[in-house]
Design a protein around this nucleic acid. Structure first.
Length: 520
RNA sequence: GGUGCUAUCGUCUAGUGGCCUAGGACAACGGCCUCUCACGCCGUAAACCCCGGUUCGAGUCCGGGUAGCACUACCA
C-alpha cells in the first residue's frame, strides 16, 4: 500500500526567494512529479519580526515564471491557498498549534519558561557554551522549578513566556537521510528548543513544521543541508507526538556556495561579483533596496531551471541539456551530490546561450524588438529609413547573429550597424583593414555594384569574386575594406549577408559615405 | 569551543574494487575553417586532500588525520 507522495516547499516571506531556495523548490517539484505526487506550498511566517511585505507574492510569481507548479497551498491562482489541509499560512494556524503545544505540555514533553531574552543573554555571557538543557533547566525560571500555582498566576497576569521542548539526555537519535544515509547524534547535545512564544502567540519553526507536515500528510521532507543539525530534534518531536509511523522521510540537499572562496552563496556575493541571486527583480519595501533578478537580466526560465538542476544533481551520462520533462523523468535523490556546489555563473550564461540559439528567429525577433526600439529611441533615430528597414528584417538579422550572444539584450551590440550607418570607425580595424589602395578599390567596387539589379548574395558573389581574381586584388583586401565601410569595424557576419539585409540602396549610400570619411 | 556533514581538473561533475593511461561540460589556451568577428570542428593544459589498513588489485571499502562547510536564537 504505497502512500501518495506529498512534498512541500515552505519558504519564509522574509525577502526575495534566494536562488538556493529555488533549487530546493525545483528538486521537490521534480520528485513530486516523478512519483505522481503533490507539490505543496506553505508559507512559514512564524517570525513576525522578519516579515517583508510583498515577499510572499514574489515567491509564487517566481515559481510560476520558472514553471514550478503548485498543486496545493498558496499559489498564483489561489493566493489564499487551495486544498483540504489549509490554511497554508502558518500565521493563520494559531489555534491548531495551541492544541498541539498543549498536548506536549500535558504529556510532560514540554514546559513553560519565563526567562527573558536578557536573562538568557546574561547567562550565556557568564557561562561559556551555555545551553538550556537537562543540566541547566533546574536552575532556570520555568514550570519545572516553580510551583504550579505560581506558573498559573504569572501566565494569567500576562507575563510573557515560551514553551520549551523537554529533551531527555543519554539517547542516541538516528535520522535516516535519503541522500546521506543514517546520521546519528546524542540527545545530550540538543537544547530545550523553544516551541512556542506567547509574545506573538506563534510557534517557532520546529513545532509548526512538524505539526504542519503531519497534518498535511507530507511524505518526504526535501530541504537544505542547514536543517540537518536540527533533524534529530524533529525526529524527537514526531516521537513525542506519537507520530513515528507516519514520519516523513528526510533528504538534506547540499548547499549552494560562493563562486569564489568558501561559504554559502549570499545576496552580497551577487552584488560583489555582478550576477543575480534571485529569480526575479525584487523591490524590498522594508529596506528600500532593489535586487537584480534572472528574469530581468534576460534569462530564459528553462535555462535557469537546467542550470540549477545540475548544480547538485547529475545523471550517469554526459547529458547537459534537459527539458523539465526530462528532469522529471530522470531525477533521483540518490544521485544528488553530498558536497556543496560552488555557484558557477559563467556556466549559467552558457545554458542561456544554448536555449537562446534553439529559439526560432521569429520568437527571438519578438523578444528583441522592444530592446531595439529602446536603443533607437535613445539614439533618436527610430524614424530613419535605415532603422525602419532593419526593423522589418528583424527575424533575419536575429537569425544571423544569435550564435554569438548569450542574451537577447546582447543582440543590439551585434546588430547595431544594421540600423544605422557607422558614424565612427574602430581605429584598430581601420588601421589593419583600410589600406593604401582601399579608396581606389571601393570606388571600383561601387561602380561594379551600382550596375547590378540582382542583389542576391549568390549573384553579387558571382560577379565580385571573379573581378577580384582577375585584377589580383586579394579577396581579404577588398572584402575587409568593404566591411569597414558597412560596419565601421572588423566584425559581423558574412559580407553578402550584410548587403542582403541592407539592400542595394543603403549599401551603396553607406559605402560612399564611409569612403568619403575614410579617404580624408 | 561543541556537534554534524563533506572531500575527483579553476568550476559543475562521471566513476559504486580490475573497463581509469581517471571520462564529459563550463572557463582558459592553441589550431583548423575563413573576407572580419563569432559559431563549429580538432587539440592542449588541468584533478583522485594526506597517512595507514583490507585486497592479487583502491579514486572506489575501512580507520586516523587534515581541511572546508553547516548548525550551535523567543530566525527560518
Amino acid at each position: 500500500m504505497n502512500q501518495k507522495v506529498r512534498v512541500r516547499f515552505a519558504p519564509s516571506p522574509t525577502g526575495a526567494l534566494h536562488i538556493g531556495g529555488v533549487r530546493t523548490a525545483l528538486y521537490n517539484y521534480l520528485f513530486a512529479r516523478q512519483h505522481g505526487g503533490d507539490m505543496l506550498l506553505r508559507i512559514e511566517d512564524t517570525d513576525s519580526t522578519r516579515f517583508v511585505p510583498g515577499a510572499e507574492q514574489y515567491i509564487i510569481e517566481a515559481l510560476d515564471w520558472l514553471g514550478i507548479e503548485i498543486d496545493e497551498g498558496i499559489c498564483l491562482s489561489a493566493p489564499n491557498g487551495k486544498g483540504e489541509h489549509g490554511p497554508y499560512r502558518q500565521s493563520e494556524r494559531r489555534e491548531i498549534y495551541h492544541r498541539y503545544v498543549q498536548q506536549l505540555l500535558d504529556s510532560g514533553h514540554a514546559y513553560y519558561a519565563f526567562d527573558t531574552p536578557e536573562a538568557l543573554e546574561q547567562k550565556r555571557k557568564e557561562i561559556a557554551n551555555f545551553q538550556y538543557d537537562a543540566r541547566t533547566r533546574g536552575e532556570m525560571d520555568n514550570s519545572l522549578t516553580r510551583p504550579m500555582q505560581e506558573v498559573k498566576e504569572r501566565i494569567a497576569q500576562g507575563e510573557k513566556y515560551v514553551v520549551r521542548f523537554k529533551i531527555e539526555p543519554g539517547e542516541e537519535v538516528v535520522v535516516h537521510d535519503l541522500i546521506r544515509g543514517d546520521v546519528s547524534i546524542m540527545s545530550d547535545i540538543l537544547d530545550d528548543k523553544v516551541l512556542y512564544k506567547s509574545a506573538d502567540d506563534l510557534p517557532t519553526y520546529h513545532l509548526a513544521n512538524i505539526v504542519d507536515d503531519h497534518l498535511m500528510e507530507v511524505t518526504h521532507v526535501i530541504r537544505g543541508e542547514e536543517w540537518l543539525p536540527s533533524a534529530p530534534l524533529h525526529v524527537l518531536l514526531y516521537r513525542a507526538f506519537g507520530w513515528t509511523d507516519t514520519m516523513p522521510q528526510f533528504a538534506h540537499l547540499p548547499l549552494l556556495l560562493k563562486p569564489d572562496g568558501n561559504g554559502k552563496l549570499s545576496k552580497r556575493d551577487g552584488d560583489r561579483l555582478g550576477f543575480p541571486v534571485f529569480p526575479l527583480e525584487f523591490h524590498n519595501q522594508k529596506e528600500g533596496t532593489v535586487s537584480r533578478g534572472y528574469r530581468e537580466d534576460g534569462y530564459f526560465p528553462e535555462a535557469v531551471i537546467n542550470f540549477l538542476a545540475l548544480l547538485g544533481w547529475h545523471n550517469t551520462g554526459d547529458q547537459e541539456l534537459y527539458t523539465m520533462q526530462e528532469l522529471i523523468d530522470q531525477f533521483s535523490l540518490e544521485r544528488v551530490s553530498k558536497a556543496g556546489a560552488k555557484f558557477d555563473y559563467e556556466k549559467g550564461k552558457w545554458f542561456n546561450h544554448q536555449y537562446l540559439i534553439r529559439r526560432s528567429d521569429d520568437e527571438l525577433a519578438t523578444l528583441f524588438r522592444p530592446i531595439a526600439l529602446q536603443h533607437l529611441n535613445d539614439l533618436n533615430i527610430a524614424d530613419t529609413p535605415a532603422a525602419q528597414h532593419a526593423l522589418e528584417q528583424l527575424p533575419q538579422i536575429v537569425g544571423l547573429l544569435k550564435e554569438r550572444v548569450n542574451f537577447v539584450s546582447e543582440l543590439w551590440e551585434q546588430a547595431d550597424f544594421f540600423f544605422v550607418a557607422p558614424t565612427q570607425f574602430d581605429p584598430k580595424s581601420v588601421q589593419k583593414r583600410w589600406k593604401e589602395d582601399s579608396s581606389q578599390r571601393m570606388q571600383e567596387l561601387l561602380a561594379l555594384l551600382e550596375k547590378e539589379d540582382d542583389w542576391t548574395a549568390e549573384h553579387l558573389d558571382s560577379i565580385v569574386m571573379p573581378w577580384i581574381a582577375e585584377n589580383d586584388y586579394g579577396v581579404g583586401n577588398v572584402m575587409n575594406a568593404f566591411r569597414v565601410c558597412l560596419v565601421g569595424a572588423a566584425r559581423g557576419p558574412h559580407i553578402w549577408a550584410i548587403t542582403d539585409i541592407l539592400g542595394k540602396e543603403e549599401t551603396i549610400a553607406r559605402t560612399r559615405q564611409s569612403l568619403n570619411y575614410l579617404s580624408k
